[in-house]
């Protein structure tokens, strides 16, 4: 579904991603784990069209999307929940969801999709008129996810959804990610919380200073000595 080949990204002279190759197949949850500054966000931004890679190719559902405008990529069915949520704090909860549905032309289906989001995140429904900036951190994460779901993505990119959340809430968010996946959305999950990420993923890639150093079945990686030492605290 998503295929990345020979991706090199620079920030000025800083070489942030070195020859990245990976793919995500339909129906999977694939996780990309790595420490601070490894290049996870850079990878997701390259896929979403916010950063132009120097070389390499990215294709989504068979069509190349390198150099395609970010808004067109969303329309093709690829949406990102960015790091730090980045909800529109000055807009209401409902307006945020409307922005998620910005690319949709099928008005008649929208109503159902709001219902789907509200069933998944009942707390958002209670706060529909509230200004998004006044939501709690957990609610903001739910809004960021709900907003992305409103675009009806075939592939959902999630950048550190557990960031800054209490353990109980992290559990809740991860189980929602699994539900979203079961409902038919493919997921590419970026995390520093490798334990949690590996527990729900099908496959995983490990990113270290811009290189993919390990990849494989999530369960096997979780069991491997190398990963346990580096990312799982023993």
């Amino acid at each position: 579904m998503l295929k990345i080949e020979g991706l090199n990204v620079f920030y000025g002279t800083i070489h942030a991603l070195h020859d990245i190759n990976f793919e995500v197949n339909e129906g999977e949850i694939v996780t990309l784990i790595g420490a601070n500054g490894a290049g996870k966000t850079t990878t997701l931004h390259s896929i979403s069209g916010l950063i132009e890679p120097k070389t390499g190719s990215i294709s989504f559902m068979g069509s190349p999307i390198t150099g395609v405008a970010a808004n067109k990529i969303v329309k093709m069915g690829l949406c990102q929940v960015p790091e730090g949520r980045r909800i529109f704090a000055n807009l209401s909860v409902l307006e945020n969801l409307e922005m998620g549905a910005y690319t949709r032309n099928d008005k008649h289906n929208l109503k159902d999709d709001y219902e789907v989001v509200f069933t998944r995140f009942p707390r958002l429904k209670e706060r529909i008129k509230q200004i998004a900036g006044t939501l709690s951190g957990g609610e903001q994460q739910m809004l960021a996810m709900g907003r992305a779901l409103m675009s009806r993505p075939k592939l959902l990119l999630l950048d550190e959804p557990s960031m800054g959340l209490a353990p109980l809430l992290v559990k809740e968010i991860f189980s929602i990610i699994q539900d979203i996946n079961k409902a038919g959305t493919t997921v590419l999950l970026v995390e520093q919380n490798a334990n949690m990420a590996l527990s729900i993923a099908t496959r995983a890639y490990v990113l270290e200073t811009g290189h993919i150093v390990l990849s494989g079945d999530a369960k096997e990686l979780a069991a491997s000595e190398e990963v346990r030492k580096a990312y799982l605290g023993g």
């Binding site: 979403s48 916010l50 970010a70 808004n71 949406c79 922005m99 690319t103």
Partner: peptide
């Protein structure tokens, strides 16, 4: 940036 990510 977030607006672009929403397809705006």
């Amino acid at each position: 940036g977030a607006a672009q990510l929403m397809g705006i």
